[in-house]
Amino acid sequence: MGLLLLCLGIGWWLWKGVAAMEDPEFIIGPAAYYIINTAEETGAANIVAAILFDYRGIDTLGEASVIYTTVCGVAMLFSKSKYKRSSAGLSFIARRGVSFLVPFLLLYGSTIILMGHMTPGGGFQGGAVFATVTILLCIVFGSSFEMSRIKPKTKETIESLGGLFFVFLGGVGLLAGAGFLANTAAGFPRGQVGNFLSAGAIPLLNIAVGMKVGAGLSTIFYSMVRVLELEFGEQMSEVEGNDKN
């Protein structure tokens, strides 16, 4: 009861803070600069993508390394568990349905990644869609099927390649003398705003981040589900042993 009152009190306090705010009519500060100059300087039609991959590219590199650290942490915590058995998967109807859906999901994910500089979307979102495909395969067909189709080593390689590609694109800017992760200043072609081939390095960075996020989230899910199946299998064998006794 006291906790509920405490939470209500904090909520009331926060509400008093935002209730005093006015509806802003215009934008000031760096955001106004980004809105005015994005088309000129980067050639990207999606201003959010331009901010993420051009103006604040180093931020995004740090963000990608957070995912990498998480994958390392999860893999380290579950390193000793050996893979024993897989779940049986779901019914025939679910299997047919998912195998019908997977090509469309792959198409959707690649669209989100490749059009990230023109429409809402980008590497993070498209990578999450790719990870969803592998998670669906894992749940519906069982994790041993998923492991046999997409090897964990392959996922690790894709993730590392994505990270290296990102840093390499940053290094191109450094070589051109324009600074780390420089875009048009480093000689990447700007193109026509709204065209598919535009915005310099932003589509390439989108692809790199997409590889990284897709493979990383998929690895996290796979190592967790493997451990859970292992524990479930142990409990099942314990139950069977008790039955015999």
Binding site: I27, N46, I47, V48, I51
Partner: peptide, 17 residues
């Protein structure tokens, strides 16, 4: 939405990023 071409005032794209 902060997508070019815009008709009118765009919302702040920085919080989205």
């Amino acid at each position: 939405p902060p997508l070019i071409p815009m008709e009118g005032q765009a919302v702040n794209p920085l919080p989205h990023a």
